[in-house]
């Protein structure tokens, strides 16, 4: 129950960060969404054994966090939270892919280990970029930007409703879970059986709430179409932001910068 409340306040904090004032925050949401999408595409398009060429991409989260005055530790913690899931997904890579790719002294590193580490780095970069996007833009603005970039309204609306009611439902889950805990007297209660009924109740309440919301929408003249009230402008700054970062990502994707730098240094060295 505590963890539910903690997760909700954590989510609220991420949203509140978007209300800060910085040059990155003041950019049009569409510019940030576009740059993040290009960044993610560039990062995930590398070969699964690629390692060195991913590292220059860390420049993007580092620069944005610094410019937007975001708390770096908060983002590191958030990204670290998803690492176990990524590790789970790549757990069997070292088992099935045993061909040795690199040697560090007498130690041979198999392709499985390389692909696992590559997967981890890519997840850190892409999930980090998504968190930074929400932290500098706000979930609502991200959804609206997606819609203005051509995403069907039905998807963006689902996301907006999910975001709006995740707090209400988390509150309800917290209260129900607290009631269960208090009557379990510190034991397991009725175990998994009580959780099944608890989840069922929550589902029914969600259903009921959805009906109430729909009624409230109908009462205010809703006839199946959402009318957006738009205010922001893309502007020259947004254009420069998209152009600058996109060019950098394309260069980093096409040219092997770490390889070139490495060759340069090893060429200088006697």
């Amino acid at each position: 129950m505590l963890s539910i409340n903690a997760a909700v306040s954590d989510l609220k904090r991420l949203d509140l960060l978007a209300n800060s004032d910085s040059p990155v925050h003041s950019l049009d949401a569409r510019a940030k969404v576009l740059v993040t999408i290009i960044f993610i595409i560039a990062v995930v398009s590398f070969d699964r054994y690629e390692l060195a060429r991913l590292f220059p991409f860390f420049i993007f989260p580092v620069v944005i966090i610094a410019h937007a005055k975001l708390p770096p530790l908060y983002f590191v913690k958030k990204i670290a939270f998803i690492s176990p899931f990524v590790l789970m997904m790549g757990l069997f890579n070292p088992v099935f892919d045993r061909a040795v790719m690199y040697h560090i002294g007498p130690l041979g590193i198999s392709g499985g280990w390389v692909s696992l580490i590559s997967m981890l780095i890519r997840s850190l970069l892409t999930v980090g970029a998504a968190f930074i996007l929400v932290g500098t833009t706000g979930f609502t603005a991200v959804c609206q930007a997606l819609e203005r970039c051509g995403t069907p309204q039905i998807f963006t609306l689902q996301l907006l409703f999910l975001h709006r009611y995740i707090f209400v439902l988390a509150d309800e889950t917290g209260r129900t879970s607290r009631a269960r805990e208090l009557r379990s007297c510190g034991r397991k209660g009725r175990g998994i059986a009580s959780f099944g009924s608890l989840a069922g109740h929550l589902l029914l309440r969600t259903w009921q709430r959805a009906e109430h919301i729909h009624t409230a929408m109908l009462a205010r003249g809703f006839i199946g179409r959402f009318h957006a009230h738009r205010r922001s402008r893309f502007g020259a700054t947004g254009f420069c932001f998209v152009l600058g970062w996109s060019l950098l990502f394309i260069i980093l994707r096409i040219y092997d910068l770490p390889g070139i730098l490495g060759a340069l240094f090893t060429g200088i060295l006697p």
Binding site: T140, R164, V168, H212, A216, M217, R220, H229
Partner: peptide, 19 residues
Amino acid sequence: DDQLFMPTVFEDVAFGPLN
């Protein structure tokens, strides 16, 4: 909470007039 479903207060109050 059943009545306020839009992302911000402004958008929620604007929902009816826009409709």
